[in-house]
């Protein structure tokens, strides 16, 4: 129990991303179907995005928008920004880029698998490899 309290509960976000990442990695490496590999890849990348997003979070913090109209009549323009009140926006911004990258990777990979299907008539790795074995090798 002590182990759970010390290592799992306070760091649950890491555990979730690690588990997701391992699921994705397993699919990428061990699955026979190319499409399943790609699903694994998507999970893998999402896990990392989740990791980044979770590290920006702070307890009791709000979204990082400076609102000057919280109390009518008060002027907040010169107030110091208290960092603890806001979640860290930088990892989130980084992830915008990473999401774009992962979408692009996925799109490209799908296009490639489409081409593979056209060339070999299947997306099963075993079938393709057995087709290649019949062809002259180096």
């Amino acid at each position: 129990m002590e182990f759970v309290e010390q290592f799992i509960v306070p760091k649950f976000n890491y555990w979730i991303y690690v588990v997701l990442m391992m699921i994705g990695m397993h699919a990428m490496i061990a699955k026979n179907n190319f499409f399943k590999k790609l699903i694994g890849m998507a999970i893998f990348q999402t896990a990392i995005i989740l990791f980044y997003v979770s590290i920006g979070v702070k307890e009791g913090a709000n979204i990082p928008i400076l609102d000057h109209h919280m109390m009518p009549g008060e002027v907040h323009a010169n107030d110091p920004v208290i960092a603890a009140k806001f979640t860290n926006p930088l990892p989130h911004v980084l992830m915008l880029t990473a999401i774009v990258v992962s979408v692009a990777t996925l799109g490209l990979a799908l296009a490639i698998s489409q081409k593979i299907y056209r060339e070999y008539g299947t997306l099963e790795e075993d079938d393709i490899l057995s087709q290649i074995k019949l062809e002259p090798n180096d």
């Binding site: 990428m28 590999k37 893998f44 990348q45 990979a109 490639i112 060339e119 393709i128 290649i132």
Partner: peptide, 16 residues
């Protein structure tokens, strides 16, 4: 095409 696919998988693991 096939080797490109393998490269995508390996490359993505690396980049990630």
């Amino acid at each position: 095409v096939l080797s490109a696919f393998n490269y995508v998988i390996m490359g993505t693991i690396g980049a990630s």
